[in-house]
Design a protein around this nucleic acid. Structure first.
Lengths: 210, 210
DNA sequence: TGTACATCAGTGAACGCGCGTTCACTGATGTAC
DNA sequence: TGTACATCAGTGAACGCGCGTTCACTGATGTAC
């Protein structure tokens, strides 16, 4: 079943994109090669026709995920910070993983990337530099301010996902959003909504459009 | 070889503390039960005399790690933010793991905690609430400001660890430190030092005492 | 353009390995009398 | 206080399982003539 060059390239791309999504959804260690291949519509055996090892795929998937994040910011008519900040609302996890496609890998798998191999950290570093430059060029004063804003956003989303109380998660996001932009004053500790029944996403999505 | 109640309790505590350190150093998924037991001076077989499963240990280790973080902040004569911020310098990883003992688990394993089970996220949430309250009570104006500051610190340390360029890592930490406190003006993009030979830690430690 | 053959993407069984977990066993401890 | 026995912390071999990886094989593709 040899495939044409175009098909082979498409297949490879499909694997990288499936990996980029799976790693962001479930983490790097928790995602297996077979799972990724299955998501790409293939069986696990063919993996090594495309990649030397899982680690090499991790690096490529990280680069690919950074690229889609950059594209999303670049293609929006807003400043980089606005785009990132407005994604606060959808950034707390949807358990069906619908929202992980455009997510920044630095946020989704930060503590795992910090322990990744040299190739992966290189990809993440390149992506981060571009992200900061893009944010700065799109209106966020300078690189230092962009670095600071992105750090705060990464931290707030991470904590919002760790915390098991939707009210608290919303509060962390709101406090950070308010301060990082200085222009969206959101009342701290919103008490509305039947948080008893709603799951984390349910509560998060109640912030949409605010 | 039955042990006395006191010995049993001490052993259990030793396991939890070994786990708290190992998880923070290497991550949750990457740390095995046998590795933890070995670090505690035991063999893996005895693990289940103390814990139902690895997941239960993760939750306890998270609680324990949060507790030592809180104690470190509480026992210092400084504000919570000062303590956290002054630990910037030592927060980029030492490969020999000497510095992971007092580290905040929310920072060390953030993206893994976000996917952890209910018990672990509950422990993390409780710890986070105490951390914010402690920071606020020690001078960081209010809870909202403490949440914001901690988010920025978590994000900056995470990025500093991901990035493979020590200069860039130092820059991210410095920009965040400067803005989160508003009182430590550090020149952005310090260019000194022979970064060619120095590893990440080497460069980070050059910021100590600044 | 048509034929013959080498290439190689993809399959699915199999590999070794380390994981979390279980279990029979040991022997010092705590308890019952 | 002393003796007999049940308890159970800790050991180390073993379990099933899923991981990353390999490999013989298939058959359509690309190439040589």
């Amino acid at each position: 079943m040899k495939k044409s060059k175009a098909e082979t390239a498409e297949t490879r791309k499909r694997i990288v994109e499936a990996a980029a999504q799976a790693f962001r959804s479930n983490g790097i260690h928790a995602t297996g090669v077979a799972e990724i291949m299955s998501a790409a519509g293939l069986t696990h055996g063919g993996f090594y026709r495309h990649f030397e090892s899982k680690e090499h795929l991790v690096a490529e998937a990280c680069a690919s995920a950074m690229e889609s994040t950059l594209e999303r910011i670049d293609s929006s008519g807003q400043t980089g910070m606005q785009t990132l900040v407005e994604h606060f609302e959808s950034q707390v996890w949807d358990k069906s993983h619908r929202d992980c496609l455009g997510e920044c890998p630095l946020i989704a798998m930060g503590s795992e990337l910090a322990r990744a191999d040299a190739e992966t950290r290189r990809a993440a570093t390149d992506g981060y530099r571009e992200l900061i430059a893009l944010m700065a060029s799109k209106g966020t004063s300078d690189n230092g301010a962009a670095m600071f804003a992105f750090s705060a956003i990464l931290g707030a989303i991470t904590i919002a996902r760790i915390v098991d109380d939707p009210q608290l998660a919303a509060r962390v996001l709101a406090e950070t959003k308010e301060r990082v932009t200085g222009v969206w004053p959101i009342a701290a500790g919103t008490e509305s909504g039947d948080e008893e029944r709603a799951d984390r996403l349910g509560n998060m999505s109640s912030l949409e459009g605010s």
